[in-house]
Simulated assay, not measured.
Amino acid sequence: MAAGWWKVLKTVPWSEVIHAAPQVATGARRLWDTVARRSGTMPPPGPIIDEIEPQEDVFGIVMARLDKNETTVGELRGQMLSASEIIANLADQNAQLIAKMDVIRTRMLWLGVATGVSSVLALVALALVAART
């Protein structure tokens, strides 16, 4: 099972992911700002026309549907606002994760170089000891 994940992780172009992470975070933040701004400027749901009394049953049905639709739109707007906030938070966390992965990748590179240098030095020391005996 782990081998399958390892193959998937090896095929991901990490350099492109790392370079695209700030753009993803910026786009998510822009989405959050746009949704927050739009939902703040919309009028609250409520009856549009208060002065007119329904004269017919059809008009009452239409007004009831209109009120129901406005309530539904308000609820959907709230859900969209919370979803865009979650998306923005996930994008920020993703950017932080990518930055940390880049730091870890750099550390692993330096660790590999240090291990290689130590191995070469150990082999040279072994060769010198073997040559003196």
Results as ranks from 00 to 15, higher is better:
132 R>L: 13
72 T>R: 09
58 V>P: 01
30 R>D: 14
23 Q>W: 03
35 V>G: 02
90 L>V: 08
110 W>N: 12
39 S>Q: 03
71 T>I: 00
6 W>E: 14
112 G>P: 00
127 A>G: 10
50 D>R: 08
82 S>R: 13
117 V>C: 09
122 A>E: 10
9 L>A: 15
57 D>Q: 09
10 K>I: 05
48 I>H: 02
67 D>T: 00
75 E>A: 13
23 Q>N: 15
14 W>V: 04
131 A>D: 13
42 M>A: 06
38 R>D: 05
7 K>I: 05
65 R>E: 15
78 G>C: 04
6 W>L: 14
75 E>L: 12
106 T>K: 13
108 M>P: 00
80 M>N: 11
101 M>T: 02
117 V>R: 07
82 S>F: 08
90 L>K: 09
77 R>K: 08
11 T>E: 12
116 G>W: 02
110 W>E: 14
13 P>R: 02
46 G>S: 10
37 R>H: 11
25 A>W: 01
117 V>L: 15
89 N>M: 10
92 D>A: 11
61 I>E: 08
14 W>Y: 11
87 I>E: 09
108 M>H: 03
51 E>V: 05
27 G>R: 07
126 L>K: 06
96 Q>M: 06
103 V>Y: 00
5 W>G: 01
79 Q>C: 05
57 D>F: 14
8 V>T: 14
23 Q>R: 13
2 A>T: 04
59 F>Q: 12
63 M>F: 12
80 M>F: 15
73 V>E: 01
47 P>L: 15
125 A>C: 06
51 E>Y: 12
94 N>C: 01
56 E>R: 07
92 D>N: 09
17 V>K: 02
119 S>G: 12
88 A>M: 05
99 A>E: 12
93 Q>I: 09
85 E>D: 08
35 V>L: 06
71 T>Y: 08
40 G>M: 08
37 R>G: 03
58 V>I: 11
12 V>F: 02
69 N>H: 11
23 Q>G: 14
3 A>L: 15
50 D>E: 07
112 G>K: 06
121 L>F: 06
120 V>H: 01
105 R>P: 00
11 T>A: 11
108 M>L: 10
16 E>M: 05
107 R>S: 08
22 P>W: 02
72 T>S: 05
111 L>P: 00
87 I>P: 00
42 M>P: 00
53 E>N: 10
119 S>E: 10
14 W>H: 14
61 I>D: 08
36 A>P: 00
69 N>P: 00
46 G>M: 09
51 E>I: 04
43 P>I: 03
83 A>G: 05
21 A>E: 05
